[in-house]
Each structure stands twice: as structure tokens, then as C-alpha cells.
Design a protein around this nucleic acid. Structure first.
Length: 186
DNA sequence: GTATCGATTAGC
DNA sequence: CTAATCGATACA
């Protein structure tokens, strides 16, 4: 369940230092029957991790440039994953600022490509066991008072928009931007 | 082999 | 709006 990831902390522990953030925006992707999923065409080299055991990372290259992080959620042989689209920075703030190249914390982890860059993900993180020592997600879920989960269509896709599989933690009165995210797709 | 498009982002 | 340019698809 994608919602179960919201409020948990995603941690990457590497040489430059530990970076972490609270997961505040996710999207669920399914198997061959989900027209928006990378698993739509069946197994390929890129999506291999989606077919692997749950609790591992699926890290893919987006538009030749960005690395985006998913948690594999389906049993082995059944593709399913949850894309982490946004974090609230917690640890390693200086490291995130350096990797992102900007000083404003709001620009460190506001999208999946930004998350990958701020975390310092590597192509080798694809398939990584999330119960290991380098990359993991906390058991604890932090929910602020009044915070709600909003479900919306997924961002940046052309097909499968009828499924409300994007989930966002929203503070009432605060984050209107998180709900719409500006885009409807192309 | 070529052409085209994306679960994206930054910058005109 | 476009460039960045990897990985996958469709097609010759």
C-alpha cells in the first residue's frame, strides 16, 4: 500500500554522510495491466527490479538524466512498486544543498528526480535490499496534527489517469501546490 | 539501423 | 516552450 509509506523516513547512508527525509508524496505503479507502469511491456533490463522481491529498491533513469527511487511492493514475479516523489529534508541538509546546487530547502526534494539527486542515488542502488545498511525506510510514521492524505491522478503520464494512485500528505491551509502540482500531463 | 517518446527538471 | 540525452518501442 502506497499510503503506508507516507510519513516514514527514507534514509541513505553513504560516505559523504547520512541524508534522510520524511516521505510526503508517492505514486503506486502496477503490473502489465497498469498502462502507466514501466512493467506495461513485461520484463526488460530496466524494470527487472520491479519483478524482484518486495522490500528492495527499483531505481530507474528518467529522461536519460535523473535517477528515481521506488520501493518494490509486489511478490517476486509480480511487478509493483511505489515511486517516492517528494521528501521533507531531515538529515544531511548541507549535503543535499551541495548535491542540488541551491540553498533553498524547498528546492532540494520536491520531485522524484530531485529526490534521487539529493539522496545521492547511484545506478547501483537499483535492486538494493532496503533492509540493508545503506538505504532503508523507517518503521515509524510521523503525522502532524491535522495532516490529511489526498489521492490524485499520477503526474506526468498520458494513460491511466483515471486511477487515483498518487498520494500526498497535505497540511490544511498550507500546501495547495502539493495537491495540483501544476501539471496535468502532456 | 532510424525515429520517437517518456513515472523529469531547469532555464529561456 | 526547449534541452538535457538513457532505455525502450516501433518500424524499415
Amino acid at each position: 500500500m502506497a499510503r503506508a509509506l507516507l510519513g516514514r523516513t527514507l534514509v541513505h547512508d553513504t560516505a559523504p554522510g547520512t541524508v534522510s527525509g520524511r516521505i510526503v508524496e508517492v505514486e503506486a505503479y502496477g503490473d502489465e495491466s497498469d498502462p502507466a507502469s514501466h512493467a506495461r511491456p513485461g520484463p526488460t533490463r530496466r524494470n527487472a527490479s520491479m519483478y524482484g522481491p518486495p522490500g528492495h529498491a527499483y531505481v530507474y533513469r528518467s529522461h536519460g538524466i535523473h535517477l528515481c527511487f521506488n520501493v518494490v511492493t509486489g511478490r517476486s514475479g509480480r511487478a509493483a512498486a511505489v515511486l517516492v516523489r517528494a521528501l521533507e529534508p531531515i538529515r544531511g541538509l548541507a549535503t543535499m544543498a551541495r548535491r542540488r546546487g541551491v540553498g533553498d530547502p524547498r528546492r532540494w526534494t520536491p520531485g522524484p528526480g530531485c529526490v534521487g539527486e539529493a539522496l545521492g542515488l547511484d545506478r547501483l542502488d537499483d535492486g538494493r535490499d532496503l533492509t540493508g545498511e545503506a538505504l532503508w525506510i523507517t518503521r515509524l510514521r510521523v503525522r502532524h496534527p491535522g495532516e490529511r492524505i489526498v489521492a490524485t491522478p499520477r503526474i506526468g503520464i498520458r494513460v491511466g489517469r483515471e486511477r487515483l494512485w498518487r498520494f500526498v500528505l497535505v497540511h490544511p491551509g498550507e500546501d495547495r501546490g502539493k495537491v495540483t502540482d501544476g501539471r496535468v500531463g502532456r
